[in-house]
């Protein structure tokens, strides 16, 4: 009687462990279901892509681009917009709807800073002088964002260049959303200001700390003076040299 129970238990244990071993090797059907994940391959279509491109001139729901300024950076007359489409931006940036104007600008600049870091620095470098890593590797050097023509360009100009591309720069519209393109434009303008503001126009606090910095490094200050920028505070060349 006793041996019989032992015997059956052993048989069960063996059978169970054999089943478990089988279970490790099997791949359930639910693992790969009859549905397509984004960009999954498909044997159904000639080019092998399950994700289908949009047919020309179709407008997906919610993607009607009526706000030309927002999407292209150009105003009704077709020239670069000088005014930010603030209402549209507030509407499209998550959480910006309830913000004050000042907070919105803060958010826009902050967002612009990270997006500029992602998409622009490879060529334009962190300061905007156009000596990024890809340029160092042989890509055609873009103009410095601090040259006079670009300093005087309205924000819509930068948005338009990002949207349509310019010279060797491809269109960045597929990579960067319209609100982010405006955020980058805002950040570019902040960058330009950071390199070309007149000392007298700075808040008193900053003027004071600038004076202190100059006293600490007289040799450095003398160099700046000889570059012929007059009163302008211009560290652009120095900073990019360190990158």
């Amino acid at each position: 009687m006793r041996t019989e129970t032992k015997h059956t238990a052993a048989v069960y244990a063996l059978a169970l462990s054999a089943l478990l071993l089988l279970a490790t090797a099997c791949r359930q059907d639910m693992h790969d279901q009859a549905k397509y994940e984004p960009l999954e391959a498909s044997s159904f279509y000639a080019n092998g892509m399950a994700s289908r491109p949009l047919i020309a001139n179709t407008v997906p729901r919610g993607f009607l681009r009526e706000d030309t300024v927002l999407f292209t950076g150009l105003d009704a007359a077709g020239s670069p917009a000088a005014i930010y489409p603030q209402a549209s931006l507030a509407e499209r940036i998550p959480g910006a709807g309830e913000m004050s104007e000042k907070e919105l600008w803060g958010l826009l600049l902050k967002r612009g800073e990270t997006r500029y870091g992602m998409f622009c620095t490879p060529c334009h470098d962190p300061v905007g002088t156009g000596r990024g890593m890809i340029v160092q590797r042989g890509f055609k050097s873009p103009p410095s964002l601090h040259e006079e023509r670009l300093r005087e360009s309205p924000p819509g100009y930068f948005v338009n260049v990002m949207t349509e591309g310019f010279g060797q720069m491809s269109s960045y519209a597929p990579l960067v959303s319209p609100e982010d393109r405006w955020a980058i434009a805002a950040y570019i303008q902040a960058l330009q200001l950071s390199q070309h503001v007149r000392l007298a126009e700075l808040p008193a606090e900053l003027v004071h700390s600038f004076g202190e910095a100059q006293n600490e490094a007289p040799a450095d200050a003398a160099e700046h003076g000889s570059e012929g920028h007059g009163e302008e505070v211009s560290h652009g060349a120095d900073q990019s040299g360190e990158i």
């Binding site: 052993a10 244990a13 063996l14 169970l16 462990s17 054999a18 478990l20 071993l21 279970a23 490790t24």
Partner: peptide, 17 residues
């Protein structure tokens, strides 16, 4: 063997998984 083999198989299965 009757005790060790199933236990060993079981642990191997777990480890393989």
């Amino acid at each position: 063997i009757g005790l060790l083999l199933p236990a060993g198989l079981f642990l191997t299965a777990l480890k393989l998984d």
